[in-house]
Nucleic acid binder design. Sequence first.
DNA 1: CGCGCACTTGAACCCCTTCAACGGGCGTGG
DNA 2: CCACGCCCGTTGAAGGGGTTCAAGTGCGCG
Lengths: 215, 215
Amino acid sequence: MKKLKDIPFFSEFDDNLFEELFSASIFQNCNKGKILFFEGDEPRYLYVLLEGKVRVYKAKNKGRQLYIHRFTPVSLIGELANFENVLHPVTAEFTSQGRVLKIDYKKLGSDFFKKPEIASKIIESLSGKIKILSDVIHKETILSSDAKVAKFIIESGELFGKIKNAQIASLLNITPETLSRVLGKFKKEGLIEIAEKNSIKILNSTKLQYIFLGH
Amino acid sequence: MKKLKDIPFFSEFDDNLFEELFSASIFQNCNKGKILFFEGDEPRYLYVLLEGKVRVYKAKNKGRQLYIHRFTPVSLIGELANFENVLHPVTAEFTSQGRVLKIDYKKLGSDFFKKPEIASKIIESLSGKIKILSDVIHKETILSSDAKVAKFIIESGELFGKIKNAQIASLLNITPETLSRVLGKFKKEGLIEIAEKNSIKILNSTKLQYIFLGH
DNA sequence: CGCGCACTTGAACCCCTTCAACGGGCGTGG
DNA sequence: CCACGCCCGTTGAAGGGGTTCAAGTGCGCG
């Protein structure tokens, strides 16, 4: 409880609030691979991610996954299903060692979420998620693979060489083959070049930008 | 102002709240086709849809649109862009005569949204939107056209015959040709039949269900 | 009766995936 | 130090699902 108060997320909470929150919650350490909830699960808890990384995705055909987002501390996870009383629309899985505060929200008073400090955290978290989902929609339904890759190179180009291309492909929800072909094309057109250790150097960022904005 | 209080949405608000809200707001009557904001616009107002219908969509290639949702009264529209301070991710357009309350949210006190009655409306609205967006993601990235159509027949089958198939196709974000082919296939497989005035009769709802759930 | 609009049908095409084979670098073991 | 094997990225060819474009069909309404 001492520890919790040091976390910026909770720092504005007063002691009563803490008492109530804490009495309905437990801490849980999680290993890599731990599933907080599966897509389609009945919601039971609200999670506050305190340490580690959590990947959120939906299941697609043939065991493939639609990558949605990677959460880092401090984030609220799984609150939608609670407020809307629907099944979890996604699966949440730890991709590293970590720790969550697991809140049995049914034990909380019904007006707990109406307290300004809490409500404002919730609003913040929900809007953040809408933004994430809007982005996913934009990427998955509007952008071509070329555009996705161009965008990724500009925004997160430094990741090339640090993680495997197959992982990048899965962040972009495309196949490694497609990623390879697009990179090949960009290289041939002189937009980028592959430097040592598979890292990428941007040669023509204007044109890259153009690709992901307009086609 | 009298009128406003009769609307369930506002009925819990006390007079002070009303005063503040009202001082920052104007009513606006809107014709069919009126655009509240375009995708990419800087957010300036928060809208409360009081009458009429508002269609929300994103622009795709070649003038096509990605249909997201149709709002009916009473709904909050455009609040995301305010809270997250991002550009509007969608376009909002009246598809009928209607009326909005247009709130210049910058005129509101910074803690206006922290008041329990308001916060709780906001939370409600935001969670509703997350649900909408999750659904869009599910439909657009997981479901095949067959599955989309099967789902639509089950959930909104009564619309066939009432509106044109081309309109249904655009709700499903598929082309009229695809819709026609899928309906033809379902008919040939004995899942549905076309009754008078282009309406649809379900012959095998189990199998339809199966198509949109599992493939 | 005939016109027009909506729906249908066919063929080509596009984008991406899938499957399969290949190639190249790197570490490990001989 | 070389050779092997493995992993990862590459490349090619085929396939699939939907769109696009164009032509055909049927039906209601004047």
